[in-house]
C-alpha cells in the first residue's frame, strides 16, 4: 500500500477526489477483501464508533452492503429510513441531521433524492458524511466498487475502453463512474437514445453515441444501467420493447464485442430489458462479483473517513 495519507472526513463525490486518493481507496479495499475471505471476517477498526444509515430514498442493496461493512468493522449501527423528504414532515433536513449528530454519532451514511444534499450537510456538521447516492448527481461507493472490479479483472485503467449504456441523463452511477474512469486514464463512451444521453458530456472528452454496435465495438468493459419504466411514461422513449430491441444487450449483438469484454451492471437488473438473462448469468458477467467487492470498498471508505474524525 502507498504511504499516501487520507485526509477527508466525508466522501461526497468522485469528482472531488484525486487519482491518488481513488487508488488509495482501492488499495485499502483490497486489504479488506482479504479480510472478508478469512474464517473470522470481523475486524475491530470501528469499535466504539456509531454509524447512522440515513436513507431518505428507498434502497435495499446499497443499504445492506453498507450495513454489512459496518458490522464487519465492529461499528454500532442505527438505521433510519424514510420515504418522504424531511421537509414534508415539517422538520428541515438540517434539523433532522443535527438531532442525529446530537446523539454523538460519528458517521452518517446518507442517501437522498435531492442533488447536493450530502454536500449541504457536510459543510454544516462535524460528523463524517458518506454519500450513498444523491439524486442523479453522485454515488461514489458504486463507482469505487466498479473501479475495483475493473482493476481486479483488467489490471489497469490506462487506455481501457469502457462503454456505459442506458439512461445516462438520470444516472448518478454513470456520472460517478465517468469521473473515476477519466481521472484514471480510461476512455469513456456513453450510449443510449439521444433523449437519455446528453451531448454536453462530449465537452469532458466522453464519446457520446446513440448506436449500440458502435458502443460495443472495441469496448473492454460494458456497463449497463437499469432502465426505469417511469422514463417511458415521461416520454423519453416510446416503449420498453423498443428500448430493449435497439439498446438492450443480447446475443444478437454479442458479435460486436471483444471476446474478453466484461459485462457489468449496478443492479437491480431488468432481465430481458437492458440485459438478456443468459448474458447476465454468463461467463462475461461480473455482476455478482461487483456486489462482493461493494462491501469491501465500503469497509475501506468507512475505515478511511473514520480515521479523519476530530
Amino acid at each position: 500500500m502507498s504511504d499516501f495519507k487520507w485526509t477527508r472526513k466525508d466522501l461526497l463525490s468522485i469528482y472531488d477526489l484525486s487519482a491518488e486518493e481513488i487508488i488509495h481507496i482501492l488499495d485499502t479495499a483490497e486489504e479488506f477483501k482479504k479480510v472478508s475471505q478469512r474464517r473470522v471476517k470481523k475486524v475491530p477498526a470501528l469499535r466504539g464508533k456509531t454509524v447512522v444509515n440515513f436513507f431518505v430514498e428507498p434502497s435495499t442493496r446499497t443499504r445492506i452492503s453498507f450495513e454489512l461493512a459496518e458490522q464487519r468493522l465492529s461499528a454500532d449501527i442505527i438505521n433510519i429510513a424514510t420515504e418522504s423528504s424531511s421537509l414534508k414532515k415539517g422538520e428541515t433536513l438540517l434539523d433532522t441531521v443535527k438531532n442525529i449528530q446530537a446523539l454523538q454519532v460519528d458517521l452518517i451514511v446518507m442517501r437522498h433524492s435531492a442533488t447536493g444534499a450530502p454536500n449541504f450537510l457536510a459543510e454544516r456538521l462535524n460528523c463524517g458524511i458518506v454519500n450513498a447516492g444523491d439524486g442523479a448527481h453522485s454515488h461514489p461507493t458504486q463507482a469505487l466498487l466498479d473501479l475495483f472490479t475493473i482493476r481486479e479483472k483488467k489490471g489497469s485503467f490506462k487506455g481501457l475502453n469502457v462503454s456505459i449504456i442506458g439512461d445516462i441523463r438520470h444516472s448518478r452511477v454513470a456520472r460517478s463512474d465517468m469521473w473515476g474512469l477519466l481521472k484514471l486514464g480510461a476512455n469513456v463512451t456513453f450510449a443510449g437514445p439521444a433523449t437519455l444521453v446528453p451531448e454536453e458530456f462530449r465537452e469532458l472528452g466522453v464519446r457520446v453515441c446513440h448506436n449500440l454496435p458502435e458502443a460495443l465495438e472495441g469496448a473492454d468493459v460494458v456497463n449497463l444501467l437499469r432502465i426505469q419504466h417511469e422514463r417511458q411514461r415521461s416520454g423519453f422513449f416510446p416503449s420498453i420493447g423498443e428500448y430493449s430491441g435497439i439498446f438492450g444487450l443480447n446475443e444478437s449483438v454479442l458479435k460486436y464485442m471483444k471476446p474478453d469484454a466484461m459485462i457489468m451492471h449496478p443492479g437491480p437488473i431488468n432481465r430481458g430489458v437492458e440485459l438478456a438473462s443468459a448474458l447476465a448469468d454468463g461467463e462475461r458477467s461480473v455482476i455478482l462479483e461487483q456486489v462482493t467487492n461493494g462491501f469491501a470498498v465500503r469497509m475501506a471508505v468507512l475505515f478511511l473517513v473514520a480515521g479523519c474524525l476530530k
Partner: peptide, 10 residues
C-alpha cells in the same frame, strides 16, 4: 434563512 437553508431542489 429557514426557507433557504434546505436541499437545493426544495
Amino acid at each position: 434563512e429557514t426557507e433557504k437553508l434546505v436541499e437545493f431542489d426544495y
